[in-house]
Amino acid sequence: MTEISVVELGIGDRAPDFDLPRDGGGRVRLTDFAGKPLVLFFYPKDDTTACTAESISFTALAAEFEKAGAAILGVSPDSVKSHDKFVKKHALSVPLASDEEKTAAEAYGVWREKSMYGRTFMGVVRSTFLIEADGRIARIWSKVKVTGHAEEVLAAVKEL
């Protein structure tokens, strides 16, 4: 497998900009969230068990995040069409961006070599970034375990 250069972002770094198509049509950019905190969560695939649970958890807490002044955006390599089906099937309220070219995943360092059942492949490592109103990274969760994650992120938002 060819070696890829992986970006390592840290706390205090400026969050990389992105411009991606989103569910329901239109585009979404990091600059759309200027002036408010953003919870940016990267997940591997629509309608898989863990990804569904994570998206439902963020949807369930969406009003709490809004009350705390933060926006939420999910990103995966799936198509907009896939996102639209996923949103409808699970009544998701969080916006989902399509990163089919993996530009955002690479910029955030979450497109990495993974292995499962002895096979190695490239994929998204489930990760969440809490981006402050000024565009700097406040917190990073890598290799996220879904249970309790949305609640943990909400607590971090409230600490900003």
Results as ranks from 00 to 15, higher is better:
residue 151 E to I: 00
residue 5 S to A: 15
residue 68 A to T: 04
residue 146 V to G: 02
residue 135 G to Y: 12
residue 104 A to Y: 08
residue 141 W to F: 04
residue 92 L to Y: 04
residue 51 C to L: 05
residue 8 E to G: 00
residue 138 A to P: 02
residue 137 I to G: 01
residue 110 V to W: 03
residue 45 K to G: 00
residue 23 D to T: 06
residue 32 D to Y: 06
residue 53 A to Y: 07
residue 151 E to D: 14
residue 37 P to L: 01
residue 21 P to C: 11
residue 20 L to S: 03
residue 103 T to D: 14
residue 70 A to C: 08
residue 25 G to L: 05
residue 20 L to D: 10
residue 146 V to Y: 02
residue 125 V to I: 14
residue 50 A to V: 12
residue 146 V to N: 06
residue 111 W to Q: 10
residue 142 S to D: 13
residue 90 H to E: 04
residue 151 E to M: 01
residue 145 K to I: 04
residue 41 F to M: 00
residue 152 E to M: 02
residue 21 P to E: 15
residue 70 A to D: 12
residue 53 A to V: 09
residue 47 D to Q: 05
residue 56 I to N: 10
residue 135 G to H: 11
residue 142 S to Y: 00
residue 38 L to K: 10
residue 27 R to Y: 04
residue 39 V to M: 08
residue 160 L to S: 01
residue 44 P to D: 06
residue 51 C to D: 05
residue 156 A to P: 09
residue 59 T to K: 11
residue 57 S to H: 13
residue 3 E to G: 14
residue 18 F to T: 03
residue 119 R to I: 15
residue 56 I to H: 02
residue 102 K to Q: 15
residue 128 T to W: 09
residue 15 A to Y: 07
residue 125 V to Y: 01
residue 36 K to F: 02
residue 55 S to H: 11
residue 81 K to A: 15
residue 111 W to S: 12
residue 16 P to T: 09
residue 76 S to A: 12
residue 140 I to H: 08
residue 26 G to L: 04
residue 131 I to N: 02
residue 115 S to I: 01
residue 126 R to P: 03
residue 98 S to Y: 08
residue 29 R to Y: 06
